[in-house]
Each structure stands twice: as C-alpha cells, then as structure tokens.
Simulated scan of single mutants.
Amino acid sequence: MSSIDTPTSPASQSILITGCSSGIGKHVALALHEKGYTVYATARNSEGVMALRSYGLQACELDLDSSESIQQAVTWVLEQTNGHLYALFNNGAYGQPGAVEDLSRDVLRQQFETNVFGWHELTNLVIPIMRKQGYGRIIHNSSVLGLVAMQYRGAYNASKFALEGLTDTLRQELDGSGVYISLIEPGPITSQFRVNAFAKFKANIKTQGSPHQTIYEQVEKRLASASEKDAPFTLGPEAVLQKVEHILTSKRPKIRYYVTFPTYLFGYLKRLLPARWLDLLLLAISRRENR
C-alpha cells in the first residue's frame, strides 16, 4: 500500500478504540467488528481485556492515566497492522461530579489526566503514522457539556471544553495532511456513565460542611437511583455508532456530529442566546434535575 492508497473496504480499515469495557466503546467495537472492520479494542485492566476477547475482539490493556500503558498499546496495535492505522476513536472517559469550589487540585488533575492528557498523548502517537501513510481518521467522543456548562459538573465541563479547543486547533494544523479529526457530541446515551460518576462523587467530594451540602443530598439520590435511561431524550449507543461510521466512510468527515436532541438544541442556543440568558436556562434545568 502506498502512502496515498486510502483503504476503502472495512476489512482493510483498522481502528483503535479506547474505553471498550462498557457503553459506547463496547457497542461500537462489537458493531464495527461484525461489519468487517479490523477492530483493536482496549480496556484499562486485564479483566476488561479478557471480557472483550471473549466476544472475539482483538484487545489489549490501555490505561489512559499511564504513558507506559498508552505506548505499549500503540506498539502492539502497529505490530498487528504492519505499521498502519486507519482510525482512532478516543472514547474512554469519566465524569467527576461536584461543585467547583469543592474540587481539590488532585481531583481536577485526575479528571484531566484521563479525559484530556491521555487522549492527547495517544493522539500524538498515532498522528505521525497517519501523516506518513497520507490518510487517517481521528474521532474524539466529546459531550454536550463541551458546548455548554452545567452546575456540579465543573471538572467534566472543563475537560470537554479543553478537548474541544485542542481538537479545533489540531484540525487546522492537520489541514492538507489527509488526516481528518472530528468531534462527536453525544448528549444522554445509555451507558454506565452515571454509575461511574456516582462512585467518583462518593470517593472525592466532601459533602459535610460544603455550602452545597443540601444540593449534594439531591445529587446523591439522583445518581444512586437513576439510570441513563431516565434522562429525557436518551438514545442507545447505536446512535453514536452511526456517526462513527459516517466519519470512517466519508471522504470529508464533518467537524462536529451532534447526536441527541439536547446537543442540537444547546449547540443552537449557544449561538443564538446572550450568555446570561443561556445561564438562566441551564440553571433552571439543573434546579429541576436536583429538586
């Protein structure tokens, strides 16, 4: 294959996916595998890897908090593909609930280690491969909270806002390289996101004595009892899969892919409304959510 021969069939298109233990990552990995793509699925521990292999996937460990793990995973994938990689789908992430004033430096740093720095390091490892071959697709799974900010999600908001800024910059810097980078903005999708967020909330936020203690009691009830399906306009992970497939097959993928109604709505309202009006709307939604 020459540096300009972009692979056109799924079987010749290899894709590395992070965060495949559950939710969006698992669904996309399995669906693309069934469609004939050469999928390299990753999980952060050996138990997750074994589970993925039981489904017939090629899988390895990739812990986004560890440079060594990231480098080993990329080395393994490139050994399997003879040094080529068609696509990277950065998906592994988590949400850290809590008011901004209750986030310690270490807790905020950890949110960025996983959601930003790990993705950045992994992306920078595959870019030279894609530049050399003259083609590639980089897909970042962002969030509606990369477009607008909501109360008690400051760490996650900040990580996704940072991701959006890095991606917009990188897109300009990749211009003319044959490598396309796109953002997917899912909104509410059925997954383990709330379960994982509740665990992080319990582990890292000191609620006693906080000015937000009363609200935290409602946040705990919501996170402990609700599932992703309880959120209005929730779609299944197949909705994200559709966007991933479009990016993989399009000659010129879009810059951003909105998925659910809230993402379309807030993407539009952010452009239309004054900031104070948008704040009032978001505050009303948060208060309704936590009452």
Rank of each mutant, 00 (worst) to 15 (best):
N141V: 13
Q72C: 11
L265W: 12
Y86K: 01
G178V: 07
E228K: 00
A43D: 08
T190D: 14
W76V: 04
R276Q: 11
D230Q: 02
V28R: 00
P97A: 03
S191P: 01
R252P: 00
K160G: 06
V126K: 08
A239G: 02
G209C: 03
G154A: 14
E220S: 14
Q133F: 02
S182L: 08
E217N: 14
Y40C: 07
V219D: 00
F201D: 00
M1I: 09
Q110V: 01
K251P: 13
K132E: 15
T38L: 11
G187L: 02
G136I: 10
G98L: 03
M130V: 09
I255M: 12
R137N: 05
P237M: 02
A29V: 05
I24E: 01
S104M: 00
I129N: 04
L272W: 15
F198H: 14
S67T: 12
A11D: 09
R171F: 10
V148R: 05
L85P: 07
I127K: 08
Y37V: 04
V116E: 07
L145T: 09
G178D: 10
I139F: 04
K254G: 04
T81V: 08
A275H: 11
A11M: 03
R105A: 13
M1R: 11
T123R: 09
I15Q: 06
T207C: 15
R276K: 12
D279I: 00
I247K: 01
S143E: 01
I247W: 04
Y135I: 03
F266Q: 04
F161C: 09
P10D: 04
L145E: 11
I255V: 15
K243T: 01
S182N: 05
L170V: 10
N115M: 03
P186H: 00
L30N: 10
L122C: 09
V219K: 05
S227K: 14
I255H: 13
R222M: 14
A275P: 11
P262H: 05
E228Y: 00
V39F: 06
L282V: 08
K270T: 12
A99F: 03
A59Y: 07
L30M: 10
F117L: 15
S227M: 06
A31V: 06
L278C: 07
V49D: 10
A162D: 10
V74L: 13
G236D: 12
L170K: 07
P186I: 01
A239W: 04
L278N: 06
H120Q: 13
G267T: 12
G92H: 02
R291C: 07
A162N: 10
V244Y: 01
S12T: 12
S2Q: 08
D168L: 13
V259P: 03
Y55G: 00
G178F: 07
Q242K: 13
S210K: 04
N204C: 01
D5F: 12
E217I: 02
V116G: 11
F266K: 03
L241E: 07
Y37H: 13
K229W: 12
E217S: 13
I215E: 13
N45S: 15
G154H: 04
P253M: 06
G83P: 12
L103H: 13
G56M: 08
L57H: 08
R288Q: 15
S12C: 07
D279Q: 13
L241R: 05
D102F: 03
I285W: 08
N115V: 07
H212T: 03
A59K: 07
T249F: 01
L223N: 08
H84I: 03
